[in-house]
Design a protein around this nucleic acid. Structure first.
Lengths: 339, 339
DNA sequence: TTTAATTATGCAACCGGTTGCAATAAATAA
DNA sequence: TTATTTATTGCAACCGGTTGCATAATTAAA
């Protein structure tokens, strides 16, 4: 039940000043080893705990890092968060996590809240429909480290952590072409988000490079929600040229697509080859197993945590436009197998 | 960049006392409407923002709720968190999330950290190997609301939020028996966790009820990690009586099991029927699709958030042992289809 | 032994709200 | 009009650390 003991209590007991107690506990250099030892010993003995409120108030620092993600319940995001959490926790920081639910309005609110909560840094993966970025300027103005992850936007004095989506998109598409596909379809999310527009650019480049013609029927913009599978199926059915290869910018949607195409009587990979993106656990489990682009959310999280921490420790900083690009890898499974 | 303005600035400008400003901003009843209006107007005009540090210090309240989960990157957990986040956020609370990584030691650390951070409430889903619960007593002693979710432990003055795992286990098993299975296997996690031991109890009850014999070969305790699939396969192979029905306490593991059993030449559901647990998205996507028990992590999260909030608001409390049981539902898919 | 240079500690202001209690102003009753 | 009651507002202590600067204690140099 221990009534809270404060540095004042310690000071009185040890017959020193509160300031000395404070400095001792914080291992300040101007305190003698002897005194430090005494203070620390007594503090432990009495179970002293620093009152974060007070410490925060005078230091104006919360030891808290804010995160905004589109949603918590996606494999990629939760894995990334797991990585972030691990690193920042080891460094003594807490994570305040909030989700935008893919809405810019909610994202704005989240940003405001986190700002008001004085997070020491902010990590963001942008919502589906975010089109303005003013809600991040308070962070920049107050020099609060701002790091975008995966779904990024280039703002001055902020850093971004991504993979080379364009290249990955190119490689995925090239793989389909290698396997003999001629009429390709790209299914991705909002072109406003770098992850989708870049993958699409890669897709388009690959088509051009292999002299495959491209028109608007070769791209489908979707919210990638499983409930929207119907639209995708319709698009494929309606297409005048028979589609024989699909690059889906998201494994979960790709898995649903496989399931539904098979239900519709298509053979995969014989009639249509499909490649996804993310190497979500589901890609191994679906039948046929799904070829995909692997990149580790966990690693991205770890790296994000590390950069932010080292920024906070003053080792590096985000002043100079700072982009970290992670590696990715093509994973070939059954869904793109040549006959 | 807008020097911070404080209640003292407002007080000076408006020629009232800081106390009056504070009370006005908090809509205290003893301030006249006129004054309140003036203060609020001026506060808005100058873009006043309350300094949480100071407010926390004097109120000794953080408006922050701590959560400890075994891991962030499981569908169930991240969905549950999504639910919690939504509710508490709307109520003006922040969520500090930490993961125990299924280790009691880490869980202890997390609990300590969250305690030191003075969270206003704590939500916990226990780690795989947690066997002592002392790390939660500080919360109870300080009357910080403590709520266990899904993987629970009954502590006095704490609440629990669960489903009827025993009944669900019974129903899953009964379903297998209904479909003609005679030699059943239960694959679950640590018996120390209610979710697994209760499901097992239901399993055993069902066997007894249908006069099916039970011995140690009918149960396999696993960490349910996909890397442990080999052990499960071996167990099934080695079994003297030919196993024809498996109840796996976790969809992901069940999905891997299906995939691997098929690879080994078994036919599912013809030779072996399988039922999972959780209704994870993967259960629909695997082939054959997986029968399972559905219960909504999201709903559980929402409910958890709501109970904690209403407790914090003084509406209900956890003093009287408080258990909320959510409903669940048997979902029949292809993996248990009778021929 | 003195003086200068270090090292260790104390003092007190400060961070910015919150809140019990006293004081004053306004409203109602006598 | 005066005495009461009630509605408003101010005062000042408090929450518990942190930190610049002055002072005291100790050590090294002269």
């Amino acid at each position: 039940m221990g009534k809270k003991i404060t540095i004042y209590d310690l000071a009185k007991i040890l017959k020193v000043s509160p300031g000395t107690v404070s400095r001792s506990l914080n291992d300040h250099p101007s305190i003698s080893q002897k005194t430090k030892a005494r203070v620390v010993a007594k503090a432990n003995e009495l179970g002293y705990k620093t009152n974060k409120f007070a410490a925060n108030l005078s230091k104006q620092k919360t030891n808290t890092i804010g995160v905004i993600v589109p949603r918590l319940n996606s494999n990629f995001m939760s894995t990334m968060l797991a990585g972030i959490e691990k690193v920042v926790n080891e460094a003594g920081y807490n994570l305040i996590i909030s989700q935008s639910l893919e809405s810019m309005e909610k994202e704005k609110l989240n940003a405001k809240t986190l700002f008001n909560n004085s997070v020491d840094a902010l990590l963001v993966s942008l919502a589906y429909d975010t089109s303005s970025y003013d809600h991040f300027t308070p962070f920049i103005h107050h020099e609060i480290p701002l790091l975008f992850l995966d779904r990024v936007h280039n703002l001055p004095n902020s850093a971004t952590l991504i993979i080379d989506n364009k290249l990955a998109g190119y490689e995925a598409t090239e793989h389909l072409i290698d396997q003999g596909c001629k009429n390709l379809l790209y299914v991705g999310g909002s072109q406003r988000r770098n992850v989708y527009s870049d993958r699409f650019k890669g897709f388009k480049n690959a088509l051009a490079n292999y002299n495959l013609e491209f028109d608007e029927s070769n791209i489908l913009e979707s919210d990638l929600n499983p409930t929207s599978i119907g639209e995708a199926i319709n698009h494929i059915k309606r297409s005048t040229k028979q589609i024989d290869g699909i690059f889906v910018a998201n494994d979960t949607f790709a898995a649903h697509l496989i399931k539904n195409l098979i239900r519709e009587g298509h053979k995969i990979p014989e009639d249509i080859k499909i490649i996804g993106f993310n190497n979500d656990p589901v890609s191994e489990l679906v039948t046929p197993s799904l070829s995909t682009i692997d990149y580790s959310g966990y690693e991205m999280g770890i790296l994000a945590g590390q950069s932010v921490i080292s920024h906070l420790n003053g080792n590096i900083n985000f002043k100079s436009a700072n982009t970290i690009t992670l590696r990715h890898q093509l994973i070939i499974r059954e869904s793109t197998q040549k006959q």
